[in-house]
């Protein structure tokens, strides 16, 4: 059962914290009974339940069957399923092929100069998020720099960097993992690969 007041607000506070402190890992906890059958990470569906409502649209990026999850999200949150170039939220399920993600990355919304907020927010699943690793983050909300390790490939990071070039246009990302951890990378954050360039 969804307890909007307690669970969702706690999740929202954590997401907000992670979004304002890019690279800092938070763990989402809920009292939601695990009888709910969700074919995604707990951190993913908690984020979805917290951020989605009837006013937003979403698109799932996956190579597997995704009809059930689409239906479930729509039923629980009233959000609309939409094509990738219209979706307010893009959800990448774990195990999705790099090529599929790159294609979505290339076509998703990044806002326009009048309304930069009309951009897609990405929710990307990882097996494991690690604080400290090969990605160097810097920018607002980060003192000097911080490093993290994700499962997603370097070329996806490069594609993301490509799409945030023209600030204030760009995409914001929420990374989730199997251990209910989340980490955020807003469009203001610069990502550099260790030993490489942007």
């Amino acid at each position: 059962m969804i307890d909007v007041v307690h669970d969702m607000q706690a999740v929202f506070r954590k997401l907000l914290h992670s979004m304002s402190r890019p690279g800092e890992v938070s763990t989402l906890k809920s009292t939601i009974a695990h009888t709910d059958r969700w074919s995604c990470h707990e951190a993913t569906y908690l984020t979805i339940l917290t951020l989605f409502d009837a006013e937003v649209s979403f698109h799932i990026v996956s190579n597997k069957q995704k009809k059930n999850l689409e239906k479930q999200i729509a039923e629980y949150t009233l959000a609309r399923n939409a094509p990738i170039d219209e979706a307010d939220f893009v959800i990448v399920l774990q195990g999705t092929k790099e090529q599929t993600i790159l294609e979505a990355m290339g076509t998703c919304k990044i806002g326009n100069l009048l309304d930069p907020q009309h951009a897609a927010t990405w929710i990307v699943e990882n097996e494991r998020i690690v604080q400290e690793g090969n990605l160097i983050l810097s920018g607002p909300g980060i003192q000097q720099q911080t490093t993290i390790q994700l499962d997603i490939s370097d070329s996806i990071i490069q594609a993301r960097n490509e799409r945030i070039k023209e600030f204030p246009l760009g995409i914001d990302m929420i990374l989730t993992d199997a251990k209910s951890q989340v980490l955020c990378i807003p469009r203001t954050t610069t990502i550099v690969l260790k030993g490489g360039t942007q």
Partner: peptide
């Protein structure tokens, strides 16, 4: 039965 969303 399961309460998916308590009254809000």
């Amino acid at each position: 039965y399961r309460e998916v969303m308590s009254p809000r």
